[in-house]
Write a protein that binds this DNA or RNA. Structure first.
Lengths: 208, 208
DNA sequence: AGGCTAATGACAGCCTCTGACAATTGACAA
DNA sequence: TTGTCAATTGTCAGAGGCTGTCATTAGCCT
C-alpha cells in the first residue's frame, strides 16, 4: 500500500467489511441489505460488489483468513507427526494464534459473534460448507505431498481429511450452540472429540 | 389423491419437477430460469413457487426422497449390528432399492445425471451440504435411540455420524467426477472407502 | 344450481448481482 | 505545474429469485 490510491482502496475495503460484519452481527445477515452497508460507508452499491463478489464473501472474509492461516500451520508441522496428529496440532495452534491474524481487520470478539451468525443462517452455513470442501481438498494435497503418496491412486489423504473435517465441523457446530463460547472451550471440545473418534467408530455403545 | 383437484395438483407438481430436472440436466442449473420451467409447463411463475420453496428445492427433490429412504433403512437395521456397520448396510441397501423409490417420479438415469449437476454447481452443492447437516442430525438421533444413549451428554452418536457423513460425501464426490458413473461403481467405492478409514487414521502412510 | 373453498394468474415490489458508460480522481512524465 | 493516462467510482438499466396481495377461476359439496 504505497500510493494514496492503494491506501484509499484498502480503507474502503476495510470500512465495507467492518460495517458489514457489524450490521450482520446486530441486525442479522438477512436483515441487512447490501444497500444498508453501502449507504453506511457512503459508497454506491455497485462499489460494494467491486470489493466483494457477494454478500456471502463479506460475511466469510474473516474465516477465509483463518483458513489460510490454518493451512500454513499444517504445512509447517514436523514430518515425524502422523497425518492426523499433524492436523490436530495445526488446529490447536491455529486457535492459539488466531488473534495475530484477525486483529488487523477486526477484534476477535467480532469473529466469534460472526461464527454464531454463520451457523444459524442457512444461506451462510451453506456457503461455509461449500468452502470447506475446497479447504479439505487443499489439506489433502498438503498431506499427500507431506507423506509422499499420490492422491489420484491413494484415497487415504482425502479420506483422513474427510474424517477430520467431519469431526471439526461437528465441533464448530456444538461449540457455537453451546453456552461456553470461548476459545478455551473450543480447544477443549476439539481435543475431546478427536479423542473419542476411535471409540465411537467400531465398538457398540451399549453397556449391558 | 382421491379427488380431481388432488390429482391435478399431483400432475402439476410432477410436471414442474420433471421439466425442471430435464432442463437442469440439459441447459444446466444456472442456465435455467424459473420462468423457463413455468413456461414449459404453462403455468405462471408464481405457481412454481407455490409448489417449491425455490429453484433449489426442485433440484434436490429426488435426493430428498432417497434420503428419507435411507433413514428408513437405518431404522430397520437389526439391533445386533454395531452403529457403523448398520449405517454401512443401510447405504448399500439404499442404493440397491433406489429404483423403487424414484421410478414413480423420474427414471434413475435422470437422478444420476442430476447428481453431476449438483456436484458441479456451487450453489446447488452448497444447498446439498446444508441439507446433509440436517440429515446427519436425524441419523444421530436414530443411532442414539437404537443404542440407548443420550445425545446431549454422549457425543458418540454425532461423532460416528460426522465421520460416516464425511466419508460418504467424499464417496459421492469422487464417484460423480470419476469415469464409471454406475450404481455398481458407487457401491464398490463405498465399501472400499469405509474399509480404508481405519488405516487412514492413525498410521503413517510412508513405506520407508 | 349455487355457495364455499382451494388453486391459479396477474401485478407490483424487494433484493442480489451484472454490464455498460460516463465522470472523477490519483499517478506520472514532460 | 500541467496534461495525459489509467484506475476508481457513480449512475443507470436490467435480469433473475422470491414474496405479498388481490381478483379470478375451477373443483367440491349440499
Amino acid at each position: 500500500m504505497e500510493t494514496l490510491r492503494e491506501r484509499k482502496k484498502q480503507r474502503t475495503r476495510e470500512a465495507l467489511l467492518r460495517t458489514a460484519l457489524e450490521l450482520f452481527t446486530t441486525q442479522g445477515y438477512e436483515g441487512t441489505t447490501v444497500d444498508d452497508i453501502a449507504e453506511a460507508v457512503d459508497v454506491s452499491q455497485r462499489t460494494f460488489f467491486r470489493y466483494f463478489a457477494g454478500k456471502e464473501e463479506a460475511a466469510l472474509a474473516l474465516e477465509e483468513m483463518t483458513v489460510a492461516h490454518f493451512l500454513e500451520a499444517v504445512r509447517e508441522r514436523p514430518l515425524h507427526e502422523a497425518p492426523m496428529e499433524a492436523l490436530r496440532q495445526a488446529v490447536l495452534e491455529g486457535w492459539d494464534t488466531l488473534n495475530d491474524v484477525i486483529e488487523a481487520v477486526a477484534p476477535v470478539e467480532l469473529y466469534l459473534r460472526m461464527y454464531k451468525v454463520v451457523e444459524s443462517t442457512p444461506a451462510l452455513l451453506a456457503a461455509h460448507l461449500r468452502r470447506s470442501v475446497e479447504t479439505e481438498e487443499a489439506i489433502a494435497r498438503i498431506l499427500a505431498e507431506r507423506e509422499g503418496v499420490d492422491m489420484d491412486t491413494d484415497p487415504r489423504p482425502r479420506l483422513a481429511v474427510a474424517v477430520f473435517g467431519g469431526v471439526m465441523r461437528l465441533t464448530e457446530r456444538q461449540w457455537s450452540t453451546g453456552e461456553d463460547f470461548s476459545l478455551d472451550a473450543m480447544r477443549a471440545l476439539t481435543v475431546s472429540y478427536l479423542e473419542q473418534v476411535g471409540p465411537a467408530l467400531s465398538e457398540s455403545w451399549r453397556t449391558h
